[in-house]
């Protein structure tokens, strides 16, 4: 029971990170209708930026952890937003009217570029950082097993909730959100009605990348390591989360993220840690077969 509760906490924290990445996939898919394969690597870049800026802030003598954390978040979000914008501009925008395979291959190419770029510029080794935030609460203890809620976990979940609230507000209430929803429905019509679709799509990539950066920071806090290869697997899992929740649906992406996080944690805890990724991918296949529209997705009626 205690073990179960502990895994539940771990799963929710991990799921929050996946959920943040999944939002980027789901938004881009909803608007442009493509899988942004490079998104996982943007998350990875976000992790690296967080690591580097953290080192710099510490070495220039900043000591207040909340200040450092906030600054690192801002720097990471701003930098990866640039990456998101540039990638859309270079690799996707020229292909918007092209045939369907083209943007997908272009995205795969971009994913390789980013992965290799990080490897070349920062080296291939895994980069560890000392624990930045330590400590936590012991929720309860019995049978010599303490159920702990670490401060990192609290920060991860709280940050996710706060960002999700802000983001939901943007989509539901602001002009940009309205434009985004209009583009998702019908790009041509939105353009005819005066929506700047180019700008809206760019902003979608920027926001998605910024959220991925947050996920990168959280990942660094949570695991204390980054490496150039972490984007690929995390990306596929986050995409699984987006599909599981129903692609195009924002709450769905978060829900899917939590589900994947929990499945992975429990699988590792109770079955085998080696096959945790196999479990996640199998879930993806099973979900797509039996529930192609996901948990919160709208069913698609085949037009004849």
């Amino acid at each position: 029971m205690e073990y179960f509760a502990q895994q539940l906490i771990n799963g929710v924290a991990l799921g929050s990170i996946y959920g943040l990445i999944a939002i980027g996939y789901t938004m881009v898919y909803g608007i442009v209708g493509m899988i942004n394969f490079a998104h996982g690597d943007i998350f990875m870049i976000g992790g690296f930026i967080a690591l580097i800026s953290f080192l710099i802030f510490v070495s220039i003598g900043l000591t207040a952890v909340p200040v450092i954390l906030l600054l690192v978040l801002l720097v990471a979000m701003a930098t990866t937003a640039l990456y998101g914008w540039t990638i859309e501009r270079i690799a996707y925008r020229p292909l918007r009217q092209s045939f369907r395979l083209a943007p997908m291959l272009s995205a795969i190419g971009m994913s390789f570029v980013l992965g290799n770029f990080a490897q070349v510029s920062q080296g291939a080794q895994v980069k560890p950082v000392p624990p930045i935030i330590t400590g936590g609460l012991t929720l309860f203890e019995s049978n010599n097993f303490a159920v702990q809620l670490s401060n990192v976990q609290i920060i991860v979940v709280v940050t996710t909730v706060v960002l999700l609230t802000i983001f939901s507000f943007i989509v539901a209430r602001t002009r940009l959100g309205r434009d985004m929803r209009a583009c998702a429905q019908d790009q041509t019509m939105a353009a005819l009605l005066g929506v700047d679709t180019d700008r809206t799509i760019s902003m979608t990539f920027v926001i998605g990348a910024a959220l991925a950066a947050v996920a990168g920071v959280m990942y660094l806090l949570y695991y204390g390591v980054v490496d150039f290869y972490m984007g690929f697997i995390a990306g596929i899992k986050a995409f699984t989360a987006a599909v599981l929740g129903g692609i195009g649906s924002l709450p769905g992406a978060m829900l899917g993220g939590l589900a994947i996080g929990l499945i992975e944690t429990f699988w590792s805890a109770y079955f085998s840690i080696e096959y945790k990724d196999v479990a996640a991918f199998s879930i993806l296949i099973v979900v797509l077969i039996f529930m192609p529209t996901g948990i919160l997705g709208r069913p698609e009626i085949e037009k004849v």
Partner: peptide
């Protein structure tokens, strides 16, 4: 060590230049 960088860029350029 730059192989993937070049391969990835080639893929992007190829698609932009000649998607068919």
């Amino acid at each position: 060590q730059y192989r993937m960088l070049v391969f990835g860029m080639a893929m992007v350029l190829m698609m932009v230049w000649r998607p068919r």
